[in-house]
Simulated scan of single mutants.
Amino acid sequence: MGFIYLEIINFVKSEAEVEDELDKVFFMLKNMSTLKTLPRIMKSAVFQRFFQLASYAKLTKEERTMYDISLKRKWDAEAVRMYQQEQVEGLEKQLGGLEKQLKEAKQASKKAVVIAKAQGQYQKAIETAVKLKSMGLSVEQIAEVTGLTIDEIEKLK
């Protein structure tokens, strides 16, 4: 294993002469202090990140503080947005559950109404059968009028 030393001052290629990735790195290191924007030959994510870090390092203390504050505000706003989105999703889920419960309750209520009506009609038929029996009608006639069975009518007092 060996080492190769390169003095950045001896790197003299221009942007047009840069050929490979190593040349790009050396070009960027040598010219970083004078670059205002990232050269078009260095559009890869690595060089973009490197340029961002170098741009941050070039900021004055006040500019860096202002940048950090704005970045913190951006992160805080994103955290608030994500929290609100989670809350909305949670509420939507709860609402869906409540809507399902309401639908089930309505169905149960409808069933209860049907059962109550049937019980009411049965009770009315029993009352009618008792009156008809007291009037002296035959069990068969009472069964025909009320819709009750003969056994049910015979059990009545």
Rank of each mutant, 00 (worst) to 15 (best):
M1I: 08
F3P: 02
I4T: 14
I8H: 05
K13S: 09
E15R: 11
E15N: 07
E17Y: 10
E17C: 06
K24P: 01
M28C: 10
M28V: 08
M32F: 12
T34D: 08
T34F: 05
L35N: 03
L38K: 04
L38Q: 01
R40P: 06
R40M: 03
K43C: 08
A45L: 11
F47R: 03
Q48Y: 11
Q48W: 05
F51T: 06
L53S: 09
A57Q: 14
L59C: 09
T60W: 02
T60H: 05
E63W: 03
S70W: 06
L71C: 07
D76Q: 10
A77D: 15
V80F: 10
Q84K: 14
Q85G: 08
Q85Y: 08
V88Q: 14
V88S: 07
E92R: 07
E92M: 05
Q94Y: 09
G96E: 15
G97P: 01
G97A: 03
L98Q: 13
K100Y: 09
K100S: 08
K100Q: 14
Q101K: 15
Q101C: 05
L102S: 06
L102P: 00
E104K: 10
A105V: 05
A105H: 09
K106Q: 14
Q107R: 12
V114K: 15
I115R: 15
A116H: 02
A118V: 02
Y122A: 03
Y122S: 02
Q123L: 13
E127G: 01
T128R: 04
A129G: 03
V130R: 15
V130N: 06
K131D: 12
M135L: 15
V139L: 12
V139Q: 08
V139P: 04
Q141G: 01
I142F: 03
E144G: 06
G147K: 00
L148E: 00
T149R: 01
E154P: 00
K155T: 08
K157N: 13
